[in-house]
């Protein structure tokens, strides 16, 4: 566990040694601003003191931005060869995967913290119900961690960051867009398909409800993705 935390710390710092973290953070915040204030329905026209739209927007931008944060996690180390230096230290492969995951989760938490001015600003315009703010953030935290897991898994398959990015997006879009296809599928499939939709599991969180079922869903996706990443990292030994 100590090694995992050391790796997480190094990963977190290395984000800020290069441009990627800054680009992604700024891009996410700009995107959030654009969607929140102007398009498709502007905050001031809505005229409601609510964070629901805010959380909905962040949940969508996450699909776009998180794979960009995770694309290099393993792919880049593989391409530059540092994976070999890292994995020949006395460290378990599982700790490497966990460390990389936690490092990115740390950066994502910073991003969430940077959006805090929104609820505070909204609060000045009326009385904001802080319960859903808390649960909304909790939901986004879990959704983010699931996406980081998925992105890390994509990064573990390849040595090319761009491939990892597109693979990450490809998997993320399944979780993101499955909602849109629900009207088209036979009735029997609606429920199981709806169950893998991230948005579906975030609905309760946005309403101010913490449902164990939703937490378990996101944790399961995270765990499965990390497990696959671990196996994929380990497979180098037998190839």
């Amino acid at each position: 566990m100590q090694s995992a935390l050391t790796i997480a710390g190094r990963q977190f710092r290395s984000y800020f040694n290069g441009p990627i973290a800054f680009i992604v953070l700024i891009f996410s915040l700009v995107l959030l601003g654009v969607f929140f204030f102007w398009w498709p329905n502007a905050f001031f026209i809505r005229g409601r003191v609510s964070v629901r739209e805010l959380f909905s927007i962040i949940h969508y931008t996450n699909y776009l931005t998180i794979p960009a944060l995770t694309m290099g996690l393993i792919a880049d180390e593989r391409a530059s060869g540092t994976l070999e230096t890292l994995l020949t230290l006395p460290v378990r492969d599982a700790d490497v995967v966990l460390g990389k995951f936690l490092g990115t989760l740390g950066l994502y938490t910073i991003f969430l913290a940077l959006t805090l001015p929104y609820p505070f600003a909204i609060n000045t315009l009326g009385t904001l119900d802080w319960g859903p703010v808390f649960t909304g953030y909790l939901g986004l935290f879990f959704q983010g961690s699931a996406l980081i897991g998925v992105g890390l898994m994509a990064s573990s398959f390849t040595r090319t960051q761009l491939v990892a990015l597109f693979a990450g997006w490809a998997i993320a879009i399944v979780f993101a867009a499955v909602d849109l296809f629900l009207p088209l599928v036979p009735a029997g499939l609606t429920t199981p398909l709806e169950f893998i939709s991230f948005d579906y599991h975030l609905t309760d969180f946005r309403r101010g409800v913490i449902a164990i079922r939703d937490i378990l869903f996101f944790l399961s996706v995270t765990a499965i993705a990390l497990m696959v990443a671990f196996r994929s990292l380990e497979s180098r030994r037998w190839k």
Binding site: Q2, S3, T6, R10, S14, G18, T82, T88, P90
Partner: peptide
């Protein structure tokens, strides 16, 4: 172990990197 072509975390400072390795070694 020094792998072929000396792969290192090039964005780190020398000291920072050695500290990381020492920490990883406990």
């Amino acid at each position: 172990y020094l792998p072929e072509s000396t792969p290192l975390y090039t964005e780190m400072l020398v000291l920072e990197y050695l500290e990381f390795v020492a920490k990883m070694r406990g």
